[in-house]
Amino acid sequence: MMVEALIAGAPVARAPAVAAAGWLLGASANPLIVAGMMDCGAAEAALDLARAARASFDHENAAAALADLDVMRQAGWLVVTPLEARALADCVLLVGSDVADFPSTPPPLAPERGRKVMRLAGDNLMARLGLLRALIGGRAITADPALAALAAALRAAHFAVVHWSAEEIPPLAIEMLCGMIETLNDTTRCFGLPQSGANNVAGVTQACAWKTGLPPRVTFARGRAEHDPWRLDAARMVVGGEADVVLWIGADLPPWAGRVRLISLVPATATLAPMPEVVIFTGRPGIDHHAILHDPGLGALTFQRAATPSAEIPPAAATLAAITGALAGEMASC
């Protein structure tokens, strides 16, 4: 029989581990729930638990997602889905070296236009992005011919796409690109294509928004949802000693395991060092159980059917709901 859970490294059944997790969260002064890898159903359940436990909630990859979001919510942006870019873009600018190559085949919905794919990467990227924006804005500057050609191609395109990754370029660069896109739309069409982050951070952000109205880095400490990208950064809270109990849901343990009392919902494949206080073995989304995940290629949430669903290993959502139930029991008995 497979091991369902561990308390202090010793195998136990799932139920006492769930009860222990509920007790730890209930007794915590500042509980924190952190998503490593998590499907959307687990995110919904984690947010229900966070509300019940007056905990904070973050995603390990939230920083880059919030960098993109910050540009949108401070100034606005024009963006495109990956499928529409594939179907229509006649000019693609890849910014930095992180984003993958884009197929140079002609856009299927306007094949006669062909497709020009360009990449701007390497040294002094920020400075060159600034120059590019200035060129697009019609400023009288001298720039190298390659950059001038790039600006000309964007201006001449019918439907240009600028693709970046917030994991690589800083928020100011994203803002510059969005400003440039805005200018190009005075005369033609151009849209941004931000690359979505790892570990379903885009899906978790969506679930967090429909559950709370806010993206990750949200807290229920005062009984209602509040959002603060700096204050509620999980790594900062752990390293700074602000969080006293952390519930982690991921494929492996977080880099800061060992610095805080830790409850972990991880698959049996996870390396358990240092050993968390409570471990509850959990299915892998889309592998051990069906899951809703953000598909970066489609730019949408999709349903990923597990080829061989496991009846023995529950999904994180079920375990999180059980912990919420255990916590309610804790609170009722106080």
């Binding site: 949108m72 919510r73 401070q74 100034a75 606005g76 942006w77 024009l78 963006v79 495109v80 889905t81 499928l83 529409e84 179907a87 069409r189 849209f191 730019g299």
Partner: peptide, 13 residues
């Protein structure tokens, strides 16, 4: 407030 989000997508956006 002075901000917006425009999404160009298959179909309508």
């Amino acid at each position: 407030p002075r901000k917006w989000a425009i999404l160009e997508a298959e179909g309508n956006g």
